[in-house]
Write a protein that binds this DNA or RNA. Structure first.
Length: 430
RNA sequence: GUGGAUUUAGCUUAGUCGGUUAAAGCGCCAGUUUGUGGCACUGGAGACCAUCGGUUCGAAUCCGAUAUUCCACCCCA
């Protein structure tokens, strides 16, 4: 039992009682993306391993330590996608979507896989909503993509989320900055903590947000990325901020945002939750102007973001954000005896054919049990059928909220009678 | 990957110093005189006490390993 009835580590089941909220969140994302002119793309769960080595970067933690990679029966090295951008970029290039007019604007809602050590909001199967825009190099594109994520987060009603942005420059100016950082920290390497010593070579920018007080003090005097941006990158970053300000979006510039994927250039951003117990990034993204070329395609700029659906749902739950009511049964047809059960069966199906959510007994239970069930599923109306009703061709339509009953025909005019009565009732409610 | 905690019915928990049929609330199923939900009452089902092993006459309880979830790192959505 222990093994067979337990979902694998770092995964979980989405149960019927939870799917409605997910659908609600997904609907907001989809709607916001489509408002911005993005269209859905669905790519395979697995790709050639090479795609992520080249695209995401073979020295990143995600690629080095966290990929689900295996050899298939044909000897190919296959990897479950650890993120969504590489696959979308691959598909865009493969199908030459850039010939259908620029920019190419894509969105997706998919699961990603990373071999993580799980914690709350850190899973091995995670769900991301993401968008990618290709062929737009202008800062207005950066601002629009950020605006899209910002809009979706706002529409969901999330609170305590801050937008943090940074520019990590182009490969040229970033290399100069890394060099300057290395020189600065190397001079004081005997004071740095052990972790930061290892960061010195791998990713010196990480030292900037080390939690050790000593490192923080040293980092405070370190060179700033923004001072090392080339003119083009600086102008671009300033323009992005200007657009965001024009749009009335609040943000802070956080020079320590680095992002863990190699493909990023220039603008990077994160949406960070400060909800107590849930202080993590619920989404992030940036520009990746070199990605398409790195994948062997034509040089085409790009940018996008990923929002962590699992984390967003966690925060929404923590903030007790209300979700729209679930679809519930409209009419429950209770019955007593076989003839009535058959009649209920037929009437329920007739209602469904007219688009009315109807249920009837399929457990051959007693009337009381059926009424309890109708209550449990929040049926709006019930109708009880028995020998008397079958004989008279009439039954009572009961409003479960008010207890009010009205006579209803169960003959050929049943649907019409129901529609008339239920309309009258809802009119009364207003 | 490192360090620390957690684990008892579907859920939330109690369980004394190791002592025999592991307890409660909620939920589920059924009944409360034969045709109507919510309230109340009564009853029932449901737990190899995470798993495997060890100590012991005896383990939910002590020890070990493994697993799970969570926390801090690492990293990230």
């Amino acid at each position: 039992m222990a093994l067979l009835t337990k979902a694998p580590k770092g995964t979980y089941d989405l149960l019927p009682r939870d799917t409605a909220r997910w659908q609600a969140v997904e609907a907001v994302m989809k709607s916001e993306a489509e408002l911005h002119g993005f269209r859905e793309i669905r790519t395979p769960v697995f790709e050639h391993t090479e795609l992520f080595l080249r695209g995401v970067g073979d020295t990143t933690d995600v690629v080095e330590k966290q990929m689900y990679t295996f050899e298939d029966k044909g000897g190919r090295s296959i990897t479950l996608r650890p993120e969504g951008t590489a696959g979308a970029a691959r598909a865009m290039l493969e199908h030459a979507l850039y010939n259908e007019g620029l920019p190419v604007k894509l969105y997706y809602n998919t699961s990603c896989y990373r071999y993580e050590k799980p914690q709350a909001g850190r899973l091995r199967e995670l769900h991301q909503f993401g968008v990618e825009m290709f062929g737009a190099a202008d800062p207005a594109a950066d601002a629009q993509v950020i605006l899209l994520a910002h809009g979706a987060i706002g529409r969901l009603g999330l609170r305590n989320i801050t937008l943090e942005i940074n520019s990590i420059g182009c490969p040229t100016c970033r290399a100069r900055y890394h060099q300057a950082l290395k020189e600065y920290f190397s001079a004081r390497c005997d004071e740095l903590c052990e972790t930061c010593l290892s960061r010195l070579e791998r990713n010196p920018m990480r030292i900037l947000d080390c939690k050790s007080p000593v490192c923080q003090e040293i980092a405070a005097g370190a060179p700033k990325i923004l001072d090392y941006l080339c003119d083009d990158c600086r102008t671009h970053f300033e323009a992005v901020q200007q657009y965001l300000t024009l749009a009335g979006v609040e943000f802070t510039v956080n020079p320590t945002i680095v992002r863990g994927l190699d493909y990023y250039t220039r603008t990077v951003f994160e949406f960070v939750s400060s909800e107590p117990g849930y202080s993590f990034a619920i989404g992030g993204g940036g520009r990746y102007d070199g990605l398409a070329e790195e994948l062997g395609g034509k040089s085409i700029p790009g940018l996008g973001f990923g929002l962590g659906m699992d984390r967003i749902l966690l925060v929404m739950q923590a903030q007790q954000i209300e979700f729209p009511a679930e679809e519930t049964c409209e009419v429950y047809l209770a019955s007593m005896g076989q003839a009535a059960q058959q009649k209920a069966f037929v009437l329920a199906q007739k209602m469904r054919e007219c688009g009315i959510a109807a249920e009837c007994d399929v457990c051959a239970r007693g009337l009381k049990a059926q009424m309890k069930y109708a209550d449990k599923i929040h049926a709006q109306y019930t109708i009880v059928l028995g020998d008397d009703e079958l004989a008279n061709g009439k039954a009572e339509l009961k409003n479960m909220a008010t207890g009010e009953k009205k006579e209803i025909s169960i003959g050929d005019d049943f649907i019409d009678a129901y529609l008339t009565l239920s309309t009258e009732q809802s009119d009364l409610a207003f």
